[in-house]
Nucleic acid binder design. Sequence first.
DNA 1: GATTTTTTGTTAAAAATGTTTGACAAGGAT
DNA 2: ATCCTTGTCAAACATTTTTAACAAAAAATC
Lengths: 225, 225
Amino acid sequence: MTDERQISKAVIARLPRYYRYLGDLMEEGIERISSNELSARMKVTASQIRQDLNNFGGFGQQGYGYNVRYLYNEIARIIGIDRQHNIIIIGAGNLGQAIANYANFEKRGFMIKGMFDINPRLIGLVVRGVEIRGIDDLEQFIIENEVQIAALTIPKSKAPEIAERLVNAGIKAIWNFAHMDLTVPDDVVVENVHLSDSLMRLSYRVSSMMDERERKEKERLEKEV
Amino acid sequence: MTDERQISKAVIARLPRYYRYLGDLMEEGIERISSNELSARMKVTASQIRQDLNNFGGFGQQGYGYNVRYLYNEIARIIGIDRQHNIIIIGAGNLGQAIANYANFEKRGFMIKGMFDINPRLIGLVVRGVEIRGIDDLEQFIIENEVQIAALTIPKSKAPEIAERLVNAGIKAIWNFAHMDLTVPDDVVVENVHLSDSLMRLSYRVSSMMDERERKEKERLEKEV
DNA sequence: GATTTTTTGTTAAAAATGTTTGACAAGGAT
DNA sequence: ATCCTTGTCAAACATTTTTAACAAAAAATC
């Protein structure tokens, strides 16, 4: 059976949001929810929710809706955060430390096994119980600790070289905060977080909103004349 | 003339990437580039580049291509980073400080005017020449300093309350790092950076890649039998 | 300076992808 | 027995990407 038709990127991109909302519902002590209620909260259509979930199986019950905790756990399983992922952080600056300090990651199976930096002043420091190391023993560390994911919070200039070392050491995925596109083999996943790109999109939207406001203001004034 | 037809989100999302590549080209000292050469570097089609740019006007020259510096500046203008944006950071933890320390933002017209936190231990500290303040005088500060953008790097629990204060004080845009969707009026821009969502997408892709690898391995073994 | 080559700006159409809407049988809840 | 709500499908609609084409402008060549 080659029935495993590809699930669209758009659906996958929505999964974390479902997960987030279900987590919120659990915190509110809500045990069950219908696609309709959830759609109202999330401002998407109920049909989209049902169809999205239907890509992975049937998790609800007719006449009942979805059990919040069950669906929450099922989505965790789909996303793969029910398993443990070992992760290292390359670049122990503010951003690297911010990631290390984000407690929830460990709750979701992302275990920070190590941090690395080239700055001698940082090496030896301990962040959240994790010691910052120099990058000389990077490869060995990855292999010994079965590290699958590397968060890359280093300057662009060093990124390609480090990425290559990571790939050669057998890393499966790079969470890339460096401001560049990495070139890696097909079987290595790269998830980009380009903060400056994000800020530029924000800038565009602010600018065009301001332009529009000005344009409307002008129109209003012209009408008055 | 209401010819200002809406430019698609997809195009806008690509602009920062064009800008990034053009910056790289400038650093390499390359003065001109054709849509064809650029497409090879960026791994998109030349036609898409030409069509994307064409949304905003004609920036190239037939038989010549594009002048790198000129196009770079024009895209900056389109994105709106040729003007100055005043920005504050709410939440002076690691993430807030990481943003404050990211030097390039100021090069691109984003001036960090202030940082705010509720943690008394942080108040008074100076990061990159910017003093961390308590949030009592938030509104006054926004008005006095003509702040347009607020980066929100605070826990989910405080985010809605702060967002409302920001909106009431006249903020035009929120760069939202809190793990929740904010509700704001239509004329306020929210750009979300949900790091945990991003990590989950990564997780999904790693997991499904590993599943696929296993499946293939199985098939291979079955064939051998 | 004439000719050929390059490359843009621009349009249109086709293909691919994603979203919305409506519908309804059937399984449980009430 | 009735109501609710899922799982499921199909069709309509919307958006985005790709492909193709070509006149016109400038560069490069002869």
